[in-house]
Amino acid sequence: MSNLFDKRDVDVAWCPGCGNFGILKLVKEVLEELEIKKNSLVNVSGIGQAAKTPYYIDTNMFGVLHGRALPVATGIKLSNENLCVVAEGGDGDMYGEGGNHFIHTIRRNIDIVHIVHNNMVYGLTKGQASPTSQKGFVTGVQVDGVINEPFNPLAVALSLKAGFVSRINIGNIKHAKEVLKEAFLYKGYALVDILQPCVTFNKINTYDWFSENSYVLDDSYDASDFEQAVKKSFETIPMPIGVLYKNKNSAVTFEEAKRGRDAKPLHSVTHDMAKIQRLFESY
């Protein structure tokens, strides 16, 4: 089925069966269904297999360096708040190399959708552990298995009072779409951590493994209860999926606090030279 965001003449560089295909399809469908305009959307990504996603979507994109999608996305949103800004990449990109930016982007509460493909392994560098790899995971580098505690992005995001914290499983596409749409509609920083298998380098955390080791938060779960969300975020096997936390009273966003509501895009902001003259002459 064709989609408005299909990009023509591109050579997709993923392995056959890769979970990224499902995420690409999901993102394009959500964009189309939410009627987001191509030229008012910017997708920023770093480096890695997941970070290639924006290259396959027909929209504005800025493919930057490993770990740096978030500060670039911040600069874009600060420059023009009318743009819908997405930062997309993998677990190594966003939680490892870009870990410091992850922390401070949440603190800023910039109005972006932060999509992280979490396959618990490094794909592009061929199979090393990622920050989210499970303990005991054996690789060519972690020859005796991973000994570090896995990074918990949801708990970290909640500890920093992120307004929208979610996890989805690409194996459950219907549910994933609902959550991703909600993330796009949320005003403020929204984290969507996507469980996704790497069919080449992670033979443990497969489509089946993710389905067997996760459960969907049902209607009885109150996503506005912060303390409950914190507890949920520490559940590991099985992992809860869905919107863990959504701040009902969405806070003032970074760009609003910085420049006020309905600020002019900076490309049309010039300074009053007569005023510069006056200020200079006060010296």
Partner: peptide
């Protein structure tokens, strides 16, 4: 904006210019 580190500083600057800021 005071950034978290210099790596972020210049990347924010690039994001800014990409979207039209000086």
């Amino acid at each position: 904006e005071q950034s978290e580190d210099e790596i972020a500083s210049l990347h924010m600057v690039l994001g800014g210019w990409y979207a039209g800021a000086r």
